[in-house]
Design a protein around this nucleic acid. Structure first.
Lengths: 215, 215, 215, 215
DNA sequence: TATGAATGAGCTTTCATTCAT
DNA sequence: AATGAATGAAAGCTCATTCAT
């Protein structure tokens, strides 16, 4: 319908594809080396376009990084939207949420690296985004519902703020992925070893349920 | 009073002091900006010596970083050696250990930043150290003893590996400090806010004791 | 006259020319001071471009040196291709070849200096070239032909390998140019003095012919 | 006898020994890397003394180099003094001189490298020596005598200046050693190969005798 | 005589960015 | 919309040398 779509459809789509490709390659580069360690030249080299194009589309290294970060969060949040948990059994539900979070972090190490990188930068890049509401995790809403049911049913005896519980779960899941390198070096234990996954997955659930039901 | 104060020359001399000063300033610079973001010029500027001296003492930026990291770990471990916990009441003991860890991380944010930075680098700088045994946390030994007593007394009902429990505690304490910037941006909550400290401090103890006593 | 002369922009553009200019100036700098003694800054200063451009075109000081060396050899070889010698009289022919080599070395002292420099470096820079076959002197082929005719005619009575004869001639011509400074200092004789040129030119011919005809 | 020899004989001798050791190590370093390529640190590292001592004894890198060069020439000249040639047969005598020169150069590649290096520097370091007369090769005097006898006996028919003949011989011997690296790279022939030595040794004699006896 | 500590000056190289069409 | 060529500024690092006793 749009005039451009009829006159130069290939170009238009290519532009979108090029942008996406740059973003994709940049995500890996930033996740691998941090903001300062990332090289615009390297990103360009791994793309079918040139360095000049990166500036053409993204203006600067910093803005490119911001777009990378934004997209990473958006993808994560989109995935979280899918959270479909049966609330009939609160214990099982909160355990299930923990597992989903656990699996999710494990399968998105680049995202976790970007978050670490952003924290090293004191989140000053994020601060330049226009909107944040869209980034707020839908997980907290799910947690809130589960807690509500749990308290109503009397199966949860200790009260906790949903955001705090989200933090507790995240801490466990993030640490395991984010700090695995130094942890392995010091304790000679690979927290992300396949053989240990199930152990930690269950430990998380036990920990959360233990917290909510004791006292 | 000291004889050296009268004989010491105008410049330099105390090589050990100069080295220590460089290390000190470098710790802040690396913690603030990461390895690639840190500037040797900046470190020099904040020291009474020159950039040349940094290379004289530390050979390269990377070796300086390694020394910074090593010293950071050694200081932390030295502090942990002080852990003096009364084991008579296992519940109270493990709670106390959690609090000490909690306080410790809170008061050493630079160390936590360095650890994050090192994990971004996949711990490859640490890997170049000669010895690691000295870095192994004494906390795990303390935990082991507490658990032993707890199981013997029958107050702890769920078994856990000491290293895993150390991980659980660390995850909570580290996340709160390391990820506070992105967390605040997204959830509008400063995890290190003074007003919230006691809440999280207690939450950690409840979480650990809850885990060990439930089931 | 050329259309490009009217449309060309103010700065740069002719990349090939810039490259050639850098190469030219670099040749002199390396020939004058050796690899380690040469200064990239100095090369830049004598060019219409900047130091940055040198790295843009040549990546590193070493690669620039390699290109300089390669080009020097190629120019020399191209000149040797012109060798047009009448083979009818073998004695005259080999004498003529000696003279051409003699003149050639005299008029290319920079090339001889570069060769000395490369030998100091044990030819390790040359070793990084891809192909050498192109550098093989065409002079040896010419020598081979002259020798063949000489032996067939019976005017040459001593056999010698063409490459060895090339070496004998080169040794004489190269030494006179390459070692003239120390020779002059010690023997107070400038081997490249104009007044002596003809004497040495003829001495070379006599030496070669003497070798081939005696015994 | 001297007072110092009785009061601190060890020190005195050590000083001389240290100087000699530095000179020895420096010779190799300069011969290996040229003047600019040589590293004072490296020389110090390979000595039992410190870098500071090098400056204590030799004032500067350049003066150290000059001493190295001077000593190298003096050793060579001292060896040449030994030249003991039977003059009864001029042909055999000049052939013998050539062989001695040939062997001499082959066994002192470092000297030849230093000479090349000095020529790269246009002999400006040598120019700063106080005396040169001592450096003048005694070989020319020997050559002069042999020539004299040869002309008197009528076995040599072509006249040549002794210094020029020395040059002719040196050119052959020096080139073979000095330019062997580039020569091997280009012609795939190692001029200093053991298997070829006798061939070139004889070629030199034939060349010289051929020159002196032809025409 | 001997020396450990210090250093100014300058080197090669890198990097994000913009010019000019 | 797209791009090859160019670049200012600064980074990490090196080197011969001297200070201060």
């Amino acid at each position: 319908m749009s005039p451009s779509s009829t006159t130069q459809p290939k170009r238009g789509r290519d532009a979108e594809r090029t942008r996406a490709e740059i973003l994709d390659v940049a995500t890996r580069e930033f996740a691998d080396h941090g903001f300062d360690g990332a090289r615009v030249d390297e990103i360009a080299a791994r793309t079918r376009t040139t360095k000049r194009m990166i500036y053409y589309y993204f203006t600067s290294k910093e803005q490119l990084y911001r777009e990378v970060l934004k997209q990473a969060y958006m993808k994560i949040r989109a995935a979280e939207q899918q959270l479909d948990i049966d609330h009939s059994d609160p214990k099982a539900a909160i355990r299930r949420l923990g597992e989903l979070t656990f699996d999710h972090h494990e399968s998105h190490p680049d995202f976790i690296r970007l978050v670490s990188i952003e924290n090293i930068a004191r989140a000053e890049h994020m601060a330049k985004f226009t909107s944040f509401s869209e980034l707020n995790s839908p997980a907290t809403a799910v947690i809130a519902k589960i807690l509500e049911k749990g308290y109503a049913d009397g199966v949860f005896t200790r009260t906790i703020d949903p955001i705090d519980l989200h933090m507790m779960i995240s801490a466990f899941c993030v640490f395991r992925v984010a700090n695995r390198y130094t942890f392995r070096t010091i304790f000679d234990r690979d927290l992300t070893d396949d053989a240990l996954r199930e152990r930690y997955r269950q430990m998380l659930g036990d920990m959360v349920v233990g917290y909510l039901t004791s006292s």
